[in-house]
Simulated assay, not measured.
Amino acid sequence: MTGRTNARRQGPSPSSGAPTQHDSLPPDAVAEVVTRFEAYARARAARDSLLPAARTGPWHEQHAFDDLQAAVARLRDSARRPAGGA
Results as ranks from 00 to 15, higher is better:
residue 1 M to A: 15
residue 3 G to E: 08
residue 4 R to G: 10
residue 4 R to W: 03
residue 6 N to L: 12
residue 7 A to F: 02
residue 8 R to I: 00
residue 8 R to K: 06
residue 9 R to V: 05
residue 9 R to K: 14
residue 10 Q to H: 11
residue 11 G to A: 09
residue 11 G to R: 13
residue 12 P to H: 12
residue 12 P to M: 06
residue 13 S to W: 11
residue 14 P to V: 13
residue 18 A to I: 15
residue 20 T to D: 13
residue 20 T to N: 08
residue 20 T to K: 11
residue 22 H to D: 13
residue 23 D to W: 08
residue 24 S to Y: 06
residue 24 S to Q: 14
residue 25 L to T: 04
residue 27 P to E: 13
residue 27 P to I: 15
residue 29 A to Q: 14
residue 30 V to I: 12
residue 32 E to Q: 14
residue 32 E to D: 13
residue 32 E to I: 08
residue 32 E to N: 11
residue 33 V to M: 03
residue 33 V to E: 02
residue 33 V to T: 06
residue 33 V to L: 05
residue 35 T to M: 06
residue 35 T to A: 13
residue 37 F to A: 01
residue 37 F to C: 00
residue 37 F to L: 01
residue 38 E to W: 01
residue 39 A to Q: 12
residue 39 A to Y: 00
residue 40 Y to R: 06
residue 40 Y to P: 01
residue 41 A to T: 06
residue 41 A to R: 11
residue 43 A to R: 03
residue 44 R to K: 11
residue 46 A to E: 12
residue 46 A to Q: 14
residue 48 D to T: 15
residue 48 D to S: 13
residue 49 S to V: 05
residue 49 S to Q: 11
residue 51 L to G: 07
residue 54 A to T: 12
residue 54 A to W: 01
residue 58 P to I: 02
residue 60 H to W: 02
residue 62 Q to V: 05
residue 62 Q to W: 01
residue 63 H to S: 14
residue 64 A to F: 00
residue 64 A to R: 05
residue 65 F to M: 10
residue 66 D to M: 06
residue 68 L to W: 02
residue 68 L to H: 01
residue 69 Q to S: 07
residue 71 A to C: 03
residue 71 A to Y: 00
residue 73 A to Y: 02
residue 73 A to P: 01
residue 74 R to P: 01
residue 75 L to V: 00
residue 76 R to K: 02
residue 77 D to V: 02
residue 79 A to C: 02
residue 80 R to V: 00
residue 82 P to D: 09
residue 83 A to V: 15
residue 84 G to E: 07
residue 85 G to N: 06
